Simulated scan of single mutants.
Amino acid sequence: MSELSSGPGRALVAVYAVFTLSAGARSGYQLATAFDHAPVAYVLSAVAALIYLLATVALWTSRRRVALAAVGVELAGVLGIGLYSVLDPGSFPEPTVWSQFGAGYGYIPLILPVLGLLWLRRGAREPANG
């Protein structure tokens, strides 16, 4: 196990894995059954799932730069899509993982990248093991 995925990092990796599965399964189902209804929302949810997957793997394997990039893109996405969906709700006939700052997921999509960045910052200050 890597240093980023140890201790509290395990919980962070677990939450990222759950979001990878939930966003991926939801968007996969929506893309397969109702793509024409809200293609932008469904594709954005699929993109979010891919970013969650990248963050999960990067945190688990202690690839700090990749994790930082994935979590940074995630935060930018949730802030950008969140704001856009609040200002122009008609553009999103169906919610995405990041719509309204993750309201449909208990705002965890907004909190998760902040926690991820804090964990990466903390880990960068600790000396490497071994």
Rank of each mutant, 00 (worst) to 15 (best):
R26S: 08
L50Y: 08
P89A: 01
L83R: 08
L68K: 00
A67V: 05
G102H: 00
A69G: 09
G72S: 15
E126L: 13
P113F: 00
A32F: 11
S91N: 03
P95N: 05
I111P: 12
A58C: 11
L50K: 12
L21C: 07
D88H: 15
A69Q: 00
H37C: 03
E3A: 09
T56D: 03
A46F: 13
G7I: 05
L112N: 05
E3R: 13
M1C: 12
R64V: 08
A25Q: 01
R26K: 07
A103W: 04
A49I: 10
S22M: 07
L59H: 05
A48E: 02
V43R: 09
D88W: 05
W98P: 12
R65I: 08
R64W: 03
E126M: 12
L44N: 06
G104E: 05
S91K: 09
R63C: 09
I51C: 07
V66I: 05
V73M: 14
A34M: 02
L83V: 09
D36T: 09
L4R: 12
S62C: 01
S45I: 10
A69P: 02
E74T: 11
L44G: 09
I81T: 10
A34N: 09
W98I: 08
L21Q: 00
T20W: 10
G24F: 02
L118Q: 06
E126A: 15
A67Q: 02
F92A: 11
V43H: 14
L118H: 05
Q30L: 12
L21V: 14
R63D: 07
Y107P: 15
D36P: 11
V97R: 11
A41T: 11
L50C: 14
